[in-house]
Amino acid sequence: MSALGESFFRPRDLGEACARVADLVTRGVPHHVIAGGTDLVVESHLRPPSTVAPPATTLVDVSRVPELVEFAVRGDTIRLGGGVTFLTVRRAPALAPLRVLVEAGKDVGAIQIQARGTLAGNVVTASPAGDGVAALMALEAVVGLRSVRGERAVPLRDYYQGYKKTVRAADELVAWLDVRVPAADAFQSWRKVGTRLAQAISKVALAAVVERDGETIRRARFGMASVAPTTSPLAHVERFLEGRAARGLDLAGLDAAVDADVSPIDDVRSTAEYRRHVARALVREVARGLAPK
């Protein structure tokens, strides 16, 4: 079957990839950029039946573009190529300080999906249940968007504009993600409540990176999946926590902050009520972790 289309290109480098995409956009040719294929091929498989053949879609395969699969440590920033896979995140010793992302990576699908699924793919797909995106948000990721017009950097928190809506222009590729390496003593946690323990889509997932000065919370960054139209930061929770003592937190106030940040729905995998309850519980779990008994 060739439901995905007719033309297939494998650019040698990022420049060629951008040029190819720019050309397709200019000519109005339906196309997709494909890396791991873990979303794109599934979507094509699930296409509803139609009496006419799907329009031929040109594919630009970036899974072997060298610049995209690299990563580099630059002081307290790590630049992750968009094509870095979850398996690479799990296995590369240099990325071990990004504990929250490493742990999230272990919870993405299972090894077959981790071996193919990429960080950029997770960002571009814009699923509300983006585990990797939640972790990247907690790491204050900045998205590097590249096109023939140049390159721009957009904080990941500003990248999503609504359900499956992003600031990415049609000719832009997610070339890299810059993440902030948390302080060595930072609290990092990942918790996924999924439909099962592997091969699962999140019902709720929470990534947290919290830095403290002694007892006081200096900096708190959270990313949560599956409780809003997009994977989202928890801005109210972060504001609530920053500057407070980790011990003796007002838990009712914390719950209220969570409620202000989430807008869960009922779907095939869970209920709004359960998700709201779990969202609160996971944030409380982080609070407990900051001040263990």
Partner: peptide, 15 residues
């Protein structure tokens, strides 16, 4: 690396 052959396109496996 273990991958699902249903999610890989043949062209991606060349080489």
């Amino acid at each position: 690396l273990p991958v699902n052959a249903c999610l890989v396109l043949a062209g991606q496996a060349e080489g």
